[in-house]
Structure formats: C-alpha cells, structure tokens
C-alpha cells in the first residue's frame, strides 16, 4: 500500500494544495490502531471537518471528542503522543501517508486539499507500540546513555565560564544540538530495526541520532574528555560501522541536522582512533 504514497510533497505541491483547499470541507483520517502490545492491529476511518490551519493534531482532538468511525460505529478515542505542538519536543512523530514526520506540523490543507481526501496515520514501525499511535522510544534515550552524551563537568558550583568558542563553531554545534530525539531518522533508516528486548539494545544498530550526539560532544572542549569512550561505544556491534549509507536520515530530519556529515565525521574519528589505539596502545 505504501507505493501509493511514493509521490513527494514538495514545497510547491504543498503551497498549491494550500491555495486550492476549501474551508469547511471534510477529510477522511484512516488510522492504524492497536489496543496494546501483542494485540492485533486494525484500521479505522474517521470523517473529520477541517478549517484552514487544521493539522493532524486538531483532527485527532476532534476524534477524541467524537470517536465515531465512518461506518457509524462508536469506538475509543485514538491514543497518541504529543507535547509542544510546534515541532520542538519531538513527541508527536508518526507515519503519515507512509512517511515519518511530526503530526503537529502536518497541515491538512497541504496534504489533503480536497473534500473527502484520505490521510493515513500509522505508528512508527521501529519502536514497540504502546497503544494506537503511541510508541515507546526509550531505546533512543538509552542510546544517549550508551554514548555518554553529556559534558563531564566538575559539578554545579561556580567555576567561571565555559570555553570560548568561535561563532562558526557555535553555529556548527547548535545545528547538531537541535536534535529532539523524535526518531524520524531511525524510522526511515533501513539499517535500524525494531528491537523490543533491551538486552540487545547495546548491540543493535544505534542510528543517526546518537552518532550525531557523539560528534556534538566530541566537538566540545570539555566534552572531548570522553571522546575515546564514545568512539569505543560506537565501534562495537551495532555501532557506526553498521550504517549502510542510505542517507534517508538526513532527508527526513525535521530539524535539518546534517546527520550524514556527522556520520562521516565520526567515521573519521573512529578510523583515527583505531589506528592510534593499534600503534600507541590504549
């Protein structure tokens, strides 16, 4: 079914759709639902009235207060994860029309401009479903622990300012630091697969998000102190070498983080680290 969505919603199409969209129309939201882990999934469709400015969230809110399917069957409200609704918290990520993205920034006018258009919502497939569209992304946070994604400061006492930094370097770090752990890069990655057994998280492919964090912290003057630990964590099974360079990550990243550059940069660091380790010893 995914083939039907193969067309790109580029900026032009979206703008044209927005201009064409008529207020006061209704669209169909087709939602893949699941009552809980291990339960079978099913599809339910809902007719939802939309206005200019409506997004997937406002549609889901409508369904929450009118949980009736297109067949007139009363059902339960759809469960989904959301937070800031302005694409900075990463919570409301889901697969919309076959492609992963945040649902808050998915404007109905841009994606379903005509009366009766269908929008398909599915939970992310790379994480275990908790219920309906809500998935458990704990593995992503675990990955941040795995690579020690923090600056090892001495403590919170007053010890003066941090290191000076050029504006160029700050801009570079800022771009990397915008990652909101939403998981788009992992959902789209052919090498990142669902793994519900936490025992195997440390040996399954870690994905672009955490690799990017390794670069971020290795670029910080104090953060560098853990550079070797971070690189070692990425050189084992499930580390950076498992990247297949499909480069989907960078294309679906809502923050435009240069993930593939981070992967290459960390690739270089691991290369250098491996040689240094071989010739110098640990």
């Amino acid at each position: 079914m995914s083939g039907a969505y193969a067309h790109e919603y580029n900026a032009e199409t979206r703008r044209a759709n927005r201009q064409r969209a008529k207020p006061g129309r209704s669209i169909i939201l087709k939602i893949k639902r699941c009552d809980g882990p291990g339960k079978p999934s099913r599809w339910e469709s809902f007719k939802v009235p939309v206005e200019p400015g409506s997004n997937v969230i406002s549609c889901l809110k409508y369904i929450a207060s009118h949980p009736v399917t297109t067949d007139g069957k009363r059902t339960t409200p759809v469960v989904w994860d959301s937070g800031c609704l302005e694409e900075v918290c990463g919570a409301c990520t889901m697969v919309i029309n076959g492609r992963v993205r945040q649902s808050c920034s998915c404007l109905i006018d841009e994606y379903a401009p005509d009366e009766g258009d269908t929008l398909t919502l599915e939970p992310m497939s790379k994480f275990p479903v908790i219920r309906d569209l809500w998935v458990d992304r704990e593995r992503m946070f675990h990955a941040l622990r795995r690579v020690k994604a923090w600056v090892p400061i001495d403590g919170t006492y007053n010890l003066g300012p941090g290191p000076k930094e050029s504006p160029e370097h700050q801009q570079m770090r800022y771009a990397l630091s915008e990652c909101m752990t939403c998981g788009c890069c992992l959902e789209a990655c052919p090498q990142y697969l669902q793994e519900s057994d936490p025992e195997k998280w440390d040996t399954s492919f870690i994905g672009a998000a955490a690799i990017n964090q390794v670069r971020l912290f290795n670029e910080h003057k104090t953060g560098k102190r853990l550079k070797a630990d971070r690189l070692e964590a990425l050189m084992g099974p499930g580390g950076i070498t498992d990247c297949g360079n499909a480069q989907n990550c960078v294309k679906v990243c809502p923050k435009g983080i240069p993930l593939t550059e981070s992967i290459a940069a960390v690739g270089r660091s691991t290369t250098v680290h491996a040689f240094t380790r071989f010739f110098k010893g640990r």
Partner: peptide
C-alpha cells in the same frame, strides 16, 4: 551570571561574538 557560566560549562551553544564571547 553564575548560572549562565554554569550552563556555558555544560555545553549550551550560546551564540557568540566574533571574538568568541557570549553574544
């Protein structure tokens, strides 16, 4: 001011001036 210093040490990418101070 001390809180800013601390956040700076934690690695917050505060915008910088040309000379490298916090903007």
């Amino acid at each position: 001011p001390n809180i800013i210093d601390l956040l700076d040490r934690m690695g917050v990418p505060f915008n910088r001036t040309a000379e490298g101070y916090r903007d």
